[in-house]
């Protein structure tokens, strides 16, 4: 056991390259430093900004097409007049999602990542640079649609919400364990399609999340029928109340 970092190295490390100690004239330095420490530092900086201005920050992650933007549209409408919602949305290209969200009356900042498959803390910080945080109650960060890469990057959010649309299959948590292990809440979206998908078992999806040692609730949700929206909005209200926010009646 490494006392300084908590990292457990194998007693006989499996090295991809064979290597046999420092050559003459070279010196070996022990570092033991997280490779993504700079991102984590920037994420903590973001989190301090959010805390200072009492903003609830939520990182929304899913595969492309699971309904992140549709969920946000429904959430904005459900909370209209109650809470100030702002969205930072990441896509490789286009301003489409930000435009959709703006039509619901909220401030939305589009990040185009080009060929990059995830957001990082610095990119989010840059996007928020000209935004006044003070009036914001909820900041949604709609990550790039991808179940792999975004999981490795802390953005400074308070909670991770991961969407799994029922058309994707109930074994997604087993296929993408790092992502679903990070979830504080899993929304099983497009639940209105369940009658057409006899192979999707919501309890199996939940079991696959539990096998990741994750107690996150799994909630069936449809923006078409409204199923689960009460639960989702109640969860947001609980998180907001924990920050002392009651909203405008």
């Amino acid at each position: 056991m490494c006392d300084s970092c908590g990292c457990v190295l194998t007693s006989e490390p499996v090295s991809i390259d064979g290597h046999h100690g420092a050559a003459p004239g070279q010196r070996e330095l022990s570092i033991l430093h997280g490779i993504l420490a700079d991102n984590n530092h920037a994420a903590q900086h973001n989190r301090e900004h959010f805390n200072l201005h009492n903003v609830l920050a939520i990182n929304l992650m899913s595969a492309p097409g699971s309904g992140k933007t549709a969920l946000l549209e429904a959430t904005i409408d459900a909370f209209a007049g109650q809470y100030n919602i702002t969205v930072v949305v990441g896509d490789l290209a286009t301003e489409n999602d930000a435009n959709r969200l703006r039509r619901h009356g909220v401030q939305a900042v589009q990040i185009n990542t080009g060929n990059t498959c995830h957001l990082d803390a610095a990119v989010v910080h840059h996007a928020l640079h000209d935004i006044a945080l003070e009036p914001i109650d909820i900041l949604f960060i709609e990550n790039v649609g991808n179940l792999v890469c975004p999981a490795a990057y802390d953005l400074g959010q308070h909670f991770n919400v991961v969407l799994l649309s029922v058309v994707e299959g109930d074994d997604k948590p087993a296929k993408y364990p790092v992502m679903f292990r990070s979830a504080d809440l899993v929304l099983l979206t497009k639940s209105d399609l369940l009658p057409h998908l006899p192979g999707f078992d919501p309890s199996a999806a939940e079991e696959n999340v539990r096998r990741l040692a994750n107690a996150a609730p799994t909630v069936l949700l449809s923006v078409v029928t409204g199923e689960g929206m009460t639960h989702w909005c109640a969860q947001l209200t609980t998180w907001l109340a924990a920050r002392g926010k009651k909203g405008t009646p």
Partner: peptide, 10 residues
């Protein structure tokens, strides 16, 4: 973990 453990320099 994702750690930089050590480096050899000259």
């Amino acid at each position: 973990a994702l750690l930089l453990v050590s480096v050899e320099l000259s």
